[in-house]
Design a protein around this nucleic acid. Structure first.
Lengths: 143, 143
DNA sequence: CTAAGTGCAAAAAATTTGCACCCGG
DNA sequence: CCGGGTGCAAATTTTTTGCACTTAG
């Protein structure tokens, strides 16, 4: 019955174990997780994959969860904690991900520009960096 | 025998119809394309989907093509024309995509910061904006 | 009680792989 | 000619959907 349940209740949605756990797990994770990662971290009994997807879709539509698109086969998800989003660096060799708070990410000017040029109302953005992590660089994994 | 073929030849790879077409189609497209989009734009006879994927993987590893991760089910690809990359705005309702040149995208400071803090050598980044396009806003598609 | 959620099975969709045959250099 | 490329079929992986049963409010 943390703020998770409250947020759900406030939005008029039933509070279920699956939803509480998803929010808890995502909030505890420093990195965005795939649906599979998420399910693995559930204490037993683990929910069905379909349920995890359905809940992720619901939580996303309620604005409690955000999807993250890295260049992978599957999508990842993270808790949408207010406006304080994060940016990430992904290693192109081993896939290692590091996240860091988007401090002083001033893209408001670009967003304003977009509104003028395309008429789009920008509500969110994602910024990811790709490169080579120190370990892979040492090993010479250049691709 | 445009610069496409030359780039491939220079890299020591056989020049085949599939590869030339992929590079041509991607270069002519203002938006990043999915593997399926790409195949559909091939003049007949269309190549097998597996071949398209294999060639996209090859061209990516050679640095001639870049994958783009929007928040969709499938990946998209774009021609990697030197350093002049683009940023994009995606409508959350209808999926419409607008691309615009990344003019004056000064993220070098952030990239330097990343190098210091994590040791990652950043070679690329992607920046996408999400929001509502004018049409969807008018129609009231808020989700 | 009743709308909404869940598991299970099956379907879709995207991507990858094995293998026999074909082609560019 | 030969290593690499291609089509075709089949397998994998991720995500979605239908349906009968259970549960939160």
């Amino acid at each position: 019955m943390g703020r998770h349940s409250e947020a759900l209740r406030r939005l008029g949605r039933p509070v279920t174990r699956g939803r509480e756990e998803i929010l808890r797990i995502l909030e505890e994770s420093p990195l965005p997780l795939s649906s599979r990662d998420l399910r693995e971290r559930f204490p037993d009994p683990k929910p069905d994959a379909a349920t995890v997807y359905r809940n992720l879709a619901l939580l996303s539509s309620l604005g409690l969860v955000r999807t993250v698109a890295l260049h992978e086969r599957s999508r990842r998800y993270e808790a949408a904690e207010g406006e304080n989003h994060r940016h990430r660096v992904v290693c192109r060799s081993c896939g290692r991900i590091e996240a860091f708070p988007a401090r002083k990410c001033d893209l408001s000017r670009v967003e304003e520009d977009i509104r003028r040029r395309f008429g789009f109302t920008v509500t969110d953005h994602s910024l990811e960096f790709f490169g080579d992590c120190p370990e892979c660089r040492r090993k010479g994994n250049k691709g």
